[in-house]
């Protein structure tokens, strides 16, 4: 299983225009995660969650600090699920799965078939994304990320663009998939309920890109929002959120 080590990470974006001010998205964040864990990053919009994920994936680079993702001392293989499916519309579902894989073709095909089956799209290999609904496209996006055999799976608010019913169904499917594979997952969301349902650990980022809270969730899987323990954990987290907002308001004066 992969190990992610983030130390004193800061990311500042340069000013957009002359005379503008640089924007600090992340400020001095440090945390580590390793093994069969599902870690959620929660926080308000603009607190740097997606930026952090982009830096971990290597799409963006840090201003200062270090990010290392290793698997048994070697560079880890990453999978990524985006807010939208980001499928190539001119390629079939199977071709989209193979596009991102660096596994030998036979293994890549077998993995793709396995995970498409898991998300209920075993029949859709030869379909084009335009022939699928938004929810089905996102299922392909999830299957694609699992199919590359990632050591670390990054998920950036994968259900935020879906309707509530589809999102709920996909959350349940993701829970099943994670329990079957036990991948190391870093999951970004602004939905506390979603974080409690899926994670073993929840890291809360505050405005300004700092870590406000780091807590473990020890409820048994599968988790249901109607369970009292679930509701209690969610209420506790929301309470901390409120504290964070109150502190921010007080600091502003």
């Amino acid at each position: 299983m992969a190990t992610l080590q983030i130390e004193k990470l800061t990311k500042t974006f340069p000013a957009h225009s002359k005379g503008g001010r640089p924007v600090r998205a992340i400020q001095d964040i440090s945390f580590a995660m390793s093994g069969q864990v599902f870690v959620s990053l929660v926080g308000p919009s603009g607190c740097g969650k997606s930026t952090l994920l982009n830096i971990v994936s290597g799409v963006d680079s840090p201003s200062t600090g270090t990010v290392t993702v290793t698997q048994d001392g070697k560079k880890a293989r990453l999978g990524y699920v985006f807010q939208d499916s980001r499928l190539l519309p001119w390629r079939t579902v199977m071709q989209n799965m193979l596009y991102v894989s660096d596994l030998p073709e036979e293994e890549a095909r077998s993995n793709a078939s396995k995970y498409l089956e898991m998300v209920g799209l075993g029949h859709a290999h030869e379909m084009f994304p335009g022939q699928l609904s938004g929810g089905m496209q996102q299922r392909v996006g999830i299957a694609r990320a699992f199919s590359v055999s990632p050591d670390l799976l990054l998920m950036d608010e994968p259900f935020s663009h879906l309707d509530a019913i589809t999102a709920r169904s996909l959350r349940e499917e993701l829970q099943v998939m994670w329990n079957a594979t036990k991948k190391t997952v870093l999951f970004v969301t602004h939905d506390v309920m979603e974080a409690v349902q899926l994670s073993n650990r929840i890291i809360t980022l505050a405005h300004g890109g700092t870590v406000f809270d780091d807590t473990t969730v020890e409820l048994p899987f599968p988790r249901k929002a109607s369970d009292p323990e679930f509701a209690a954990q969610q209420a506790e987290l929301l309470g901390r959120f409120e504290t964070m907002e109150l502190e921010r308001t007080a600091a502003k004066g």
Partner: peptide, 27 residues
């Protein structure tokens, strides 16, 4: 740019990007 970033995130090799993403996108 979303497809470019997706390809970056998965580390898709350049030749495959040109063949499967760039050329069909500019058809």
């Amino acid at each position: 740019p979303e497809l470019r970033r997706m390809s970056d995130a998965f580390g898709v090799p350049r030749n495959r990007r040109i063949r499967s993403m760039l050329l069909p996108a500019i058809t």
